[in-house]
Every structure is written in C-alpha cells, then in structure tokens.
Design a protein around this nucleic acid. Structure first.
Lengths: 201, 201
DNA sequence: TTATTTTCTGGACAAATTGTCTAATTTTGG
DNA sequence: CCAAAATTAGACAATTTGTCCAGAAAATAA
C-alpha cells in the first residue's frame, strides 16, 4: 500500500509548487510558463504533466488546500472577534494577516478571479454565517448577504492598506480603527425597524 | 491635416475595441487571442499590430480613456454625495453604477491588476482628496489614506453586491443603507482626539 | 538481496500563438 | 487624378502547449 507514499511524488510536487510560488513573487500568474516552473523545480517538463493537467490545476491543487488551512484559522477568529458585543478582539485578525503577510499580499496582487474573489466569497460566507447566528430569531431589516459583503469589503480594505503600507501601526491600533469605523454603523442598522425604508423595490 | 482624420483608422480601431469588449463578455482576458480579436473585428491580423503593440496596449489605449471619462463623472458625484453632512445624495453614485452596469461588472469580474486595482486606487485618491478638503485645518486623528481605503472598499463592496445580485432594490435604498452603515463610523472617528490611541507605533 | 512496480526523464511531435516582415491592394485627402 | 497612407494575406521563426514514448532511476515488496 505504499503507492501514495512514494517519496518521489511528494518531492516532485513540493518542488513544483515551491517553484511556482517563487515565480509568482516575480512575475504575473499568466506570464509564468510550465517550462519555467519545471525548470525552476529541476524537473522534466513531462513530469509536470504527469502530476497536473496545467498551470491552473497546479494552483487549484495547492492553493486551495492552503486556503482551507487559512480559512480554518480565520473561521474561529471571525466568529469571536468581528462582532463581539463588548471587547475588541479584532486584533487577532490583523495578527493573522501579519503572520501570513506574503500570502495575503500575493492574494491581493495576483488576485484576479483565482485567489482574491475566492477569499472574498469565503469571508463573506463566514461572516453571513456568523451574522445569522447572532440575529437568530428576529430577522434582519437588511439583507444579511449585503451586510456580509460590506463587512468583507471594509475589513479587506483595512488589512490591504495595512499590509501594503508595511504595517505602519500596531495590530491593536488597526483593530481599534476597525472597531470605531464599523461597529457604529452595524449597531445603527441593527436598531432599524423592518419598515424603516419602504421604497426597497 | 487629414492624417488623424482618416476614416479607416477610426473604423479599424473602433472595430478592434468593440470586438475586444464583445469577447471580454464571454472569455477571460488572458484567454483572448489577437487572432480572435482581429477575426471578430473583420480585420487582418497584421492590421492589429499596425495599431497596437499587443493586447495590453489595446486595453490601455481604450479602457484608460473610458476610465478617464467615467472618473470625470464620478469625481463630482463623490465630492458632493459621499460625505455631505446632511442629505443623502449617494443615490447618484448607485445610479451611475446602474447606468454603466456592464462596464462595472466587467471591471469586477476581469479585475485583476488591470482594471479593478486601477479603479480602486483612483477612487481612493478622489476620496482622500475630498476628505482633505473637508478636514482642512484640523488634522485627522487617523491617517486619511486609511480612511479613504476603508470608504473605497466599503462602497465598492456595496455596489458590487448590488450589481451582482441584479439590483434587487432601488438606488435610493442602497444609498440609505450605505448612509446608515458608513456615516456613524466616520463621525465617530472625526470626533476622536488626536491622542485617542497612544499605542499606534 | 532480488524482482517488480512506479516514477522520472529527455526527446520528439503537431498545433496554436506571437510578433515581424513583405509585397500587393484599397482607400483617403489634396 | 495622384501621391500618401492604411489595409491585406501570407510567410516566417520563435514559444508554448499538451501528448506520447522508451529507457533510466528509484521505491517498494518478497
């Protein structure tokens, strides 16, 4: 049963992904060729096609798993931090971003539909989930997916600004800013009556 | 002086750009070939290279101008609407988005570094500009570029949600939501003392 | 260890794309 | 009408892509 355990497979796949990530730091995704990847990985080009259908497949097979891991870390952070009624624990979100700075900057820069949108959607889903459990019972006067999109966009913008500006201030500070910018509005809409605006359609 | 007026040039360039936009609605930017563009435009492939260096050049020469035009419309809207103290004129922003729905959806979808980032940066600059004139004199307790990034991200998220969900509510409604979500936070930070948070560094 | 299975390799292949270049053909503006 | 400019089809070498093969190399099993 030593089929999937073959060291050569692990070694080759890791070499290919490492090479890919290295190239991704220099060039645009679309500008990277399979030849370059195999070259940088010190692996025959035919070997590449032995493991992956194409460039997208390599990305999907690896980044996807990476995101799963990151998402796993983000999920509990989001739930307990973003909308906690009293304390500001949003700090841990910015700390998470700082820890994986390279990864997130890569996502922001190479973005496109591949990584950026994927992360945005994932965050929006997580947030919507969290909001739903918070509201549980009384329904929100405003579409939850809309609120989730707003929160995602706002938080992402803050994190992006922070990372792209080389983290000129502490995670605590950023969390406090996020707190002051976002919470009042969220409380405002939470207090709205269901019929606060009748012209919706 | 009949050099730039040559109808053939105008006709060819328009045909090429129209073909490009048409293809952009079906396929990803990177998947579109010069051959396809020339084909769709009913123009020789050599003619394409007579006008543009490559695909990026075609995009830069046209979309850029288009953005200039859009930006020109957005500028006054932003200034008078987003941060007007009393009335909600943010409606015109959503109306603008609705008018150019196809264009903005294209930007959101094809995004990448090419269009999306460009628009984001432009908006952030415009907003920062506006904020600076608003604050004029007393300096902001929070980095203006940070506030501008937040506003850009938040507004973009709302517009994106609205367009991607086929505008399920009126522009008025969206403007009201934006108002309730964003303004309280902005007023909150505007009231902060310069030393409200000492751990910035 | 030896035998067997799997993976890796370099090379070759057709197809598609790119950017450049010609030499003819058409259209425009004067 | 004529000269200038734009367009055209086609050819061209250079890359890239995805597939295939036969042999070398390495891992696993007995």
């Amino acid at each position: 049963m030593g089929r999937k355990t073959d060291r050569r497979i692990q070694r080759t796949r890791k070499a290919l992904f490492d090479a890919f990530m290295a190239l991704l730091l220099e060039k645009e995704y679309e500008a990277i060729t399979v030849t370059e990847i195999a070259d940088q990985a010190n692996v025959g080009r035919a070997t590449f096609y032995l493991h992956y259908r194409d460039k997208d497949d390599l990305l999907a097979s690896n980044i996807e798993a990476l995101f799963e891991e990151v998402a796993g870390r983000i999920r509990p952070l989001l739930k307990q931090s973003i909308l906690a009624r009293d304390t500001i624990q949003g700090r841990i979100l910015f700390e998470e971003a700082a820890r994986n700075k390279d990864l997130y900057l890569l996502v922001f820069r190479q973005g496109g539909t591949l990584l950026y949108d994927r992360l945005q959607r994932h965050m929006a889903d997580l947030i919507a989930e969290t909001l739903e459990t918070l509201i549980m019972g009384g329904d929100s006067p405003i579409e939850i997916s809309l609120l989730a999109s707003y929160l995602t966009g706002a938080l992402t913008a803050l994190v992006k600004w922070w990372l792209e500006n080389d983290m000129p201030c502490s995670a605590d500070y950023m969390a406090a800013v996020a707190q002051h910018l976002i919470r009042p509005g969220m409380e405002q809409v939470a207090l709205l009556e269901s019929d606060w605006y009748t012209q919706k359609e």
